[in-house]
């Protein structure tokens, strides 16, 4: 499979971690709703040395914030590798391409393509929702840039070196569409996939099985989404308000059973660690993407608890165990 794994590598740290067979760990930072860079830098402290790369969201939940590209640059200044998120909601194909080139010029090496939450769900519901391209076409366009041509067919003088990411939601309906969707994204050049948060391991397992049957785990790295939550009410809020999240009743009961705030937080960490360990055992899962919602300080506890520290220094050490890169590359 020539899914662009071999070319342009050696630049993105995340790509090196994955291609050398390590189990990758990503974090996530929501840029602030203001112009203060120290907010991003402060959050970076929690992630340094704990994750291989951090996502910088792009106006998540359709709420206006500091731009993903600016926050990515701040993250780099703090010594972390950013994954810049790019939605189809706010930009047309011209803006998307120019941002990809600009990001690459600034040294950003990972971009994640998403459709984006609809504007009506955010704080500017009057806004024009762009959706010029969909996430599948966005992924293909990014591959095109890397291969040296714009979507128009014109030549790109210096193609950007980018590690291309896309998303998947194993829990949405209908199930088959979730597999087809990933198939299309992989065919369009997605090299790594971050999934929606996993709060239903059996369903996730079923989806992974379908992905393996389609041969997708051979062509892309799948990172399972993990969300440590601090209380039962956060979990309920996610279930009721965040589109595309499916939460098994069992977790809500476990969180509700906690007697105190601290107890609930411990339980949240336990659930996250346990989920990481369970998804790690599923064949084809190449890493985890941990999204601590408004609780960045917990990241070390979770990663440490799951036995994923220290993070590999891929320039120095070969993979500690098991899966080698050759095993993945057909």
């Amino acid at each position: 499979m020539e899914n662009a794994r071999s070319d342009a590598c050696g630049v993105s740290h995340l790509e090196r971690v994955l291609s050398s067979g390590h189990f990758a760990v990503c974090g996530e930072i929501g840029p602030p709703r203001g112009a203060d860079p120290s907010e991003v830098l402060r959050k970076c402290e929690y992630f340094r040395g704990v994750v291989d790369a951090v996502n910088l969201t792009d106006n998540q939940a359709a709420v206006a914030r500091m731009s993903s590209m600016a926050a990515s640059l701040l993250t780099m200044q703090a010594g972390l590798e950013p994954i810049m998120q790019m939605t189809c909601r706010d930009r047309n194909r011209l803006a998307q391409q120019s941002d990809m080139l600009g990001a690459a010029a600034l040294g950003i090496r990972n971009i994640l393509c998403l459709s984006g939450d609809h504007v009506t769900l955010g704080n500017h519901p009057q806004a024009k929702s762009v959706h010029d391209l969909d996430a599948v076409n966005l992924t293909a366009m990014m591959r095109g840039l890397r291969e040296g041509h714009f979507l128009s067919g014109d030549e790109v003088k210096t193609p950007p070196e980018l590690f291309i990411g896309a998303t998947a939601n194993p829990f949405g309906e209908p199930f088959l569409a979730r597999v087809h969707n990933l198939k299309k994204k992989v065919a369009s050049g997605a090299q790594f996939i971050q999934t929606q948060v996993v709060f239903d391991v059996p369903r996730f397992e079923k989806w992974m099985q379908a992905c393996r049957d389609e041969g997708l785990t051979e062509q892309t790295y799948i990172l399972a989404g993990i969300a440590p939550v601090r209380s039962a009410s956060t979990l309920k809020f996610m279930r009721n308000n965040v589109a595309g999240v499916h939460i098994a009743e069992e977790y809500i009961q476990r969180m509700s059973a906690a007697s105190s705030k601290e107890d609930a937080m411990d339980e949240g960490v336990r659930i996250a660690v346990e989920t990481i360990q369970r998804v790690r055992d599923i064949p084809g899962v190449a890493g985890v993407h941990i999204m601590p919602v408004m609780w960045e300080s917990v990241i070390r506890r979770v990663v440490e608890g799951a036995g994923l520290l220290p993070r590999p220094d891929v320039l120095e050490s070969p993979p500690a165990e098991a899966r080698s890169a050759s095993e993945l590359t057909p």
Partner: peptide, 19 residues
């Protein structure tokens, strides 16, 4: 609403409704 021509977004509700 997103004029998606390549399949659903991640926001389809469990009952098959639109987010």
């Amino acid at each position: 609403p997103k004029e998606l021509r390549d399949g659903p977004c991640g926001g389809t509700l469990p009952n098959g409704r639109c987010e």
